[in-house]
Amino acid sequence: MYVIDYMETGNPSDRHFEHRNQPLVQGVGVKYFSLLEATPLPAIRIDILEKVELGPHSKVKHIIHITYDDLTSVARANLPEAVKRIVLENEKIFTEFFNIADPINIRLHALELLPGVGKKTMKAILEERELKKFENFADIKERVRIDPVKTLVERIIKEITGSEKYYLFVKPRERGVSEIYLGYLERLHGEIF
């Protein structure tokens, strides 16, 4: 996970009692953009925007899932930069999204859910990928004239806040009747790895 806030003395307003008076980190998972809260190990210093492994040799313990509403203002401010770093580190996966995105229904294409992508841009993306698959972000930017990183980051942040009808990348925490999860990250991780 990428750490988006580190509270050395805890968070007195945290809804989890154990996090109110002991060190606490908030972060975003690097694979599926899960929002996480954890306790750093004793005598461990963690920096904001540091990438922390979550395996057996992790610097943190007691990892729990949280919602966007649980994030501190510092964590919310650092979230876009952390998401941007994740997108850039996974350029191959996110480039592939532009190559495989499908229509959602007869009136809406998955690409149209990206900020700044309307019918005209979507048509350009589809025509360009028909000629030749996109190879990387620079290729997308050059051939279609959009900034794929900025567009993806904006979309992922919208999905993390939980205010969307369709979810391309982030699985909604509280799935209601009106939310539709399209699961592109599972598809992309399965195809590429």
Rank of each mutant, 00 (worst) to 15 (best):
K92E: 13
K61P: 02
Y68K: 06
S73Q: 10
K119W: 03
N99A: 15
E142H: 08
H109A: 11
A101P: 12
K84A: 10
I156H: 11
E142Y: 10
I48Y: 02
L185C: 07
I44M: 08
I156A: 09
V25C: 04
E130A: 14
N105T: 04
H109R: 06
P103E: 15
S73M: 12
T151V: 11
V74C: 00
S13Y: 11
F97T: 00
L113F: 11
N21P: 01
V60A: 15
E135D: 04
K133V: 02
I106F: 09
P42D: 10
R129A: 08
K133R: 12
H16V: 06
S178E: 07
V3E: 01
F17H: 03
N11Y: 10
I160V: 13
F134P: 04
N105F: 12
R175L: 14
P23C: 13
K31C: 03
N136G: 00
G190V: 01
L108T: 15
D70R: 04
V28C: 07
R45N: 14
E174R: 15
A38W: 02
K31D: 14
T9R: 14
E91M: 03
R15K: 13
E142A: 13
P115G: 11
L49P: 03
K31A: 07
S13I: 02
K171P: 05
D14I: 04
N21V: 02
P40Y: 03
Q22W: 00
I64R: 15
H65W: 00
P40M: 02
Q26P: 06
H19M: 04
L131Y: 06
I93E: 08
G190F: 08
N90R: 13
K59T: 09
A75Y: 05
K150D: 04
E128V: 01
L35Y: 04
F94R: 04
N78Q: 11
I156N: 03
P172M: 10
I106N: 14
I146M: 09
T67E: 15
R15S: 10
I100H: 12
G10E: 13
R15W: 09
V170F: 12
V25M: 08
H16C: 05
I48Q: 10
P103S: 14
P42C: 09
P12I: 09
H19Y: 12
Y6C: 07
I66C: 11
E53C: 09
E130V: 00
E81W: 02
Y2T: 00
A77F: 11
K133I: 00
I106C: 09
D5T: 01
I156L: 08
L111E: 06
D47G: 15
I48R: 13
E154S: 10
N11T: 01
F33Y: 10
I104S: 06
F169Y: 06
K123L: 11
D69E: 15
L168I: 10
K158Y: 09
